[in-house]
């Protein structure tokens, strides 16, 4: 049951987008997000759709995967749709029941919102589909490095993120082992009232915490033994390298952004 969790949803295939510099990918994704929220017109959505489809095609990620990342958020989408439908007032009234009514404005706004959120998810999930978590944290560190001047422990924060990501599969495996061991001693995890089920988690959570702390001490000790002392003067195994394709991608994004701004102002 725990193997279904896909936190690092990296989809390892060979494509232009996969090979792009992760720093650029993050910047482009952020520009894309700002763009989606900047534009208040339908042209924004069209441009956003164009961007998403183009990027997905370049990345060779199957559209099925994009749908997979939208699916878990369907309840939230439904919730916003209903809220917008009922709350926004204006234009022709299509349906009314006591104080609840659905109006023209409401329909338009909710459609706009839902499309916007879908594009948002599709665009951002593309980032995690095409970039491995480790590279992603490297890139975040690189992008945040100016903050080092302000005495922000950027490297340490990135290191913490990397370690956390690295140990997720290990801990999942550990959890499965502990569950099996407690089941072998007759632990009942599948039946009983809610209270009983929560209580049944104790024999799993305590050993899990203990082992997580043990791993943490071991790791700290091992790092200490190798004289690890943070970011100062450290070189990397994987250097982030930017190239022509990154500049081209950034240029296209900026161009699309300009279109959105222009459409906002002119139309």
């Amino acid at each position: 049951m725990l193997s279904d969790i896909t936190l690092g949803q990296y989809f390892p295939i060979e494509s232009v987008v996969h090979r792009m510099d992760a720093r650029f990918k993050i910047i482009i994704t952020m520009l894309f997000l700002v763009m989606l929220f900047w534009g208040q017109r339908w042209t924004t959505l069209l441009v956003g759709l164009f961007f998403t489809v183009l990027a997905t095609l370049c990345s060779k990620i199957p559209f099925k995967m994009i749908w997979k990342s939208i699916k878990p958020l369907l309840p939230i989408l439904l919730f916003t749709t209903i809220l917008n439908l009922l709350m926004i007032d204006g234009g022709d009234v299509y349906w009314q029941w006591k104080f609840l009514k659905i109006t023209e404005e409401g329909v338009i706004t909710s459609a706009f919102m839902v499309s916007r959120i879908c594009l948002l998810i599709a665009g951002t999930s593309l980032l995690t589909y095409t970039t491995s978590p480790i590279v992603l944290t490297d890139a975040i560190e690189a992008l945040l490095s100016p903050l080092k001047k302000l005495k922000m422990p950027v490297h340490e924060l990135a290191m913490m993120m990397t370690i956390a990501l690295r140990f997720i599969p290990t801990l999942i495996e550990e959890t499965n082992k502990i569950i099996a061991a407690q089941k072998a001693r007759g632990a009942d995890l599948e039946s009983g009232s809610l209270k009983q089920r929560i209580k049944a988690l104790v024999p799993i959570l305590i050993p899990l915490f203990v082992s997580a702390f043990r791993r943490a001490t071991d790791l700290a000790l091992a790092m200490e033994c190798r004289c690890y002392h943070g970011g100062e003067g450290r070189t990397r195994l994987r250097q982030l390298q930017s190239g022509m394709r990154d500049y081209i991608a950034l240029a296209i994004t900026l161009l699309l952004f300009a279109v959105v701004i222009a459409a906002n102002a002119l139309l």
Binding site: A184, R185, D188, P203, P207
Partner: peptide, 20 residues
């Protein structure tokens, strides 16, 4: 199956990690 597990006891590798 729960009764089966009581009749066939299984001690995993490094079982000390299951103590709680």
């Amino acid at each position: 199956r729960r009764q089966v597990r009581f009749r066939v006891g299984l001690v995993f590798q490094y079982p000390e990690y299951q103590l709680f």
